[in-house]
């Protein structure tokens, strides 16, 4: 039996297994980033029913903010993350106040929310372009050694740590949404705004708090993007990945955003290995078209045509 197992686990099989395992791990860590973007995006979508493109802008500003405070005060990774998350929460609150408070009070058409949010996204991106110019920045190497070696296969330490932190963040978010009073309020608001008001909940406060949570998620996602890629103002456009993820998962569905993000990450790594990095957007696009044709409601969503 032992000999049989030994011959079955040949060197070649082992190598192939490790190759796929490595790919899966890369995909999971990329997917975790997408999932965090998608969660922040979906939170806003679920309460206000519009796609919040300013999320990307908040991500970029937070990523640069983290770079600046890290440089100035020489913080470690955890400290930097916490401070930036707090900053992201405040920033999102400001963005909400400038962009959406007035529209919400007037019950404006959903398209105005779209326009307002995408304009704010571009505004935040350009504030970064003006202050830092379009050159690239990079975080210092937080993790030494950057790679660990197992049997000739290298695993990136930062990927593992990001995967771990993402898991913690996602669990924290789930706890917030399903076990606290604020979470109940947010979920109730996502079902029906008017009824929630009648139940004695201050809608403005809940909306502001939801934006703060989503801003903190954007900050985490921004730092991860900065660690994973490099810092540049167009990181803004990664909100688009979060949008695809949340649509594939089912728009407005929290757990759907999680599944969608991880699926998108794993798929992109697979496409990358099969067709090369340049063609990844093409295959992602074709895949999402086919997916929407087959299952328009997403992985976990229920499809309803709602009133405007």
């Amino acid at each position: 039996m032992a000999r049989l197992l030994e011959t079955w686990i040949s060197q070649e099989r082992m190598e192939r297994f490790m190759y796929y395992f490595q790919m899966l791990l890369n995909g999971l860590s990329l997917g975790a980033i997408y999932a965090i973007i998608a969660l922040g995006f979906t939170l806003i979508y679920s309460i206000l029913k519009f796609s919040n493109f300013s999320h990307g802008g908040i991500m970029v500003v937070c990523a640069y903010f983290a770079y600046v405070i890290q440089r100035r005060y020489n913080l470690n990774f955890g400290m930097m993350m916490l401070i930036t998350a707090a900053f992201g929460a405040v920033l999102a609150c400001i963005v909400q106040y400038i962009g959406f408070e007035n529209l919400r009070a007037k019950r404006s058409n959903i398209m105005l929310f779209f326009v307002s949010s995408s304009t704010l996204g571009i505004l935040l991106q350009n504030i970064i372009v003006i202050t830092f110019s379009s050159t690239y920045y990079a975080y210092p190497a937080f993790f030494t050694p950057p790679f660990i070696d197992v049997n000739g296969f290298t695993f990136s330490v930062s990927d593992m740590i990001m995967l771990g932190i993402s898991a913690v963040v996602i669990l924290g978010l789930m706890f917030l949404l399903y076990r606290t009073r604020l979470g109940i309020a947010i979920r109730a608001l996502s079902m029906d705004g008017d009824t929630v008001k009648l139940m004695g909940i201050n809608v403005s406060v809940v909306v502001a708090l939801t934006f703060m949570v989503s801003g903190a998620l954007a900050a985490v996602a921004g730092i991860f993007c900065g660690v994973n890629y490099i810092l540049y103002p167009q990181l803004n456009q990664l909100v688009f990945k979060g949008m695809i993820a949340s649509i594939l998962g089912g728009l407005g569905n929290i757990s759907g955003a999680l599944y969608g993000g991880i699926m998108l990450g794993v798929l992109e790594v697979c496409f990358n290995n099969a067709f090369g990095a340049g063609l990844v957007p093409v295959f992602s696009f074709v895949f999402s078209m086919i997916f929407l044709l087959v299952r328009p409601q997403g992985i976990a969503g229920k499809y309803v045509l709602d009133k405007v």
Binding site: M111, I247, L251, L279, S284
Partner: peptide
């Protein structure tokens, strides 16, 4: 819904640029 059109057209934009580059 409208959001899906926003997403698909945006994906189309990225895909076209990637295709032209490659």
């Amino acid at each position: 819904r409208r959001d899906y059109i926003a997403m698909i057209t945006m994906g189309f934009g990225e895909a076209i640029v990637a295709l032209l580059n490659n």
